[in-house]
């Protein structure tokens, strides 16, 4: 079976995020959304299509792969599997 695994890599919550901060300040707030929007974080989004027997296995494969191949660096990054979907 094929599964779609969506992952998000972003800077750790307490790390600085210069890109998000700049987008917030220079585009969002300057564009008139100062009262409504208080934070923007930027990150990377990767979507894997993976062969597995069940969704937990798909999740495990991608989690291991991302650790092993240094798709993210836990020293600075937060890694989230945001969605697993059967194709």
């Amino acid at each position: 079976m094929k599964f779609l695994v969506e992952t998000i890599i972003e800077n750790l919550p307490l790390a600085r995020n210069p890109e998000g901060e700049t987008i917030l300040r220079e585009l969002v707030h300057r564009g008139g959304y100062k009262d409504l929007v208080s934070d923007v974080r930027s990150g990377k989004y990767l979507r894997f299509t993976v062969e597995a027997d069940h969704s937990n296995e798909a999740k495990e494969i991608i989690f291991d792969l991302c650790n092993k191949l240094r798709i993210f660096n836990p020293i600075v990054h937060k890694f989230t599997i945001s969605k697993v979907e059967k194709l």
């Binding site: 800077n11 750790l12 919550p13 307490l14 790390a15 600085r16 995020n17 210069p18 700049t22 020293i75 600075v76 937060k78």
Partner: peptide, 16 residues
């Protein structure tokens, strides 16, 4: 807990 959310290495901002 919050310490785990803090990076051991700083993030630079070349634009700043």
């Amino acid at each position: 807990e919050s310490e785990a959310d803090r990076p051991a290495v700083q993030i630079g901002d070349p634009f700043a």
